[in-house]
Simulated assay, not measured.
Amino acid sequence: MRRTLLNPKIDFVFKKIFGSEEHPEILISFLNAVLKPQKPIVSVEIKNSDLEKEYIEDKCSRLDVKALTSNKEIINIEIQLKNEYNMIQRSLYYWSKLYEEQLSEGDRYDKLSRTVCINILDFKYLKNDRFHNGYRLKEIETNEELTDLQEIHFIEIPKLKRFESTEEIVDLLEGWVEFLRDPESEVIRKLEMSNKEIREAKDELYRLSRNSKERELYYLREKSLRDEISALANAEEKGLKEGLKQGLLEGKLESARSLLDILDDDTIATKLNMDVDIIKKLRIETLKK
């Protein structure tokens, strides 16, 4: 039976491919495509390649990729499947932690390195049509850049246009995002023939997909993420219902206020299908004003 490829957007698989110490060229190529540095990155030191089983099963854990580049940059890459409506705040928090953790007591501030957070999102988040946005600190009126020590990127997979052929791909980052979106697309099949890093990533994805132990861990992680997404969806639904319920109550109270001068409490309660005690309380509050 033919086995399908694992989904590279699941953070467990993403980390296995892009955070692999055996295949650093994959991460180097991806980072150069995202950051487009004047001095290309030529090597990376991956900081968190270990994956313990308890983290895989923990739906609250972050399986991100951390690395130090040959340009002395600290990089953090996180991939998110579900919109929690807090990515900006969350990214600033993680950026500040990475920046602060560089110093020990007594260290000088000039030892702090450029720190970059890259957020890959499987949903639309920012209010523009670009699939890739990068931000730094700038002066409000002149747009003058204060520093490049802080840099935060958002890559929104659903905003990437659909490609009919490799000729339409003008930027390597488009190729990498297409790989994450659909590693078996015809475009990727052609692109991997000319790009060795994408071919290497595809080979690693094949290896993971064929390995029974890796597939077992993948399904554990997929389940934990599915549980997390389900919990978020339930919370959203509950919040929506509570909001509608509150809005309906406010509407009824407003209608009741308009009837206080012309109808008695029992009649108002009957007409609006409300508890008469609420109407009586509303009348008392109105008389006090």
Rank of each mutant, 00 (worst) to 15 (best):
I188C: 06
R283I: 07
S43C: 02
Q38Y: 05
E167S: 14
L63G: 02
S255G: 00
D107F: 13
L149T: 15
F30I: 10
S20N: 08
I278K: 06
K124P: 00
D203A: 10
Y99W: 14
I79M: 07
L287S: 13
L146N: 08
T286S: 06
G19C: 06
D148G: 13
K53Y: 13
M87G: 00
E237K: 12
T115M: 07
T267N: 13
E214F: 10
K111D: 04
I56P: 00
C60V: 05
L282W: 04
N48E: 06
I10S: 02
P40Y: 15
R257H: 03
F12Y: 14
M193H: 06
F18L: 15
K289A: 01
E45Y: 06
E84S: 08
G134A: 06
K66W: 03
E141C: 08
I77M: 08
E22P: 01
I140A: 02
E250Y: 07
G251H: 11
I198F: 03
E22H: 09
I28S: 03
V170H: 12
D129V: 12
N234G: 07
V13H: 00
K288G: 02
L205D: 03
I17A: 05
V187L: 02
L160P: 00
I56W: 01
N76W: 06
G19V: 04
R226G: 11
L248G: 03
L244C: 03
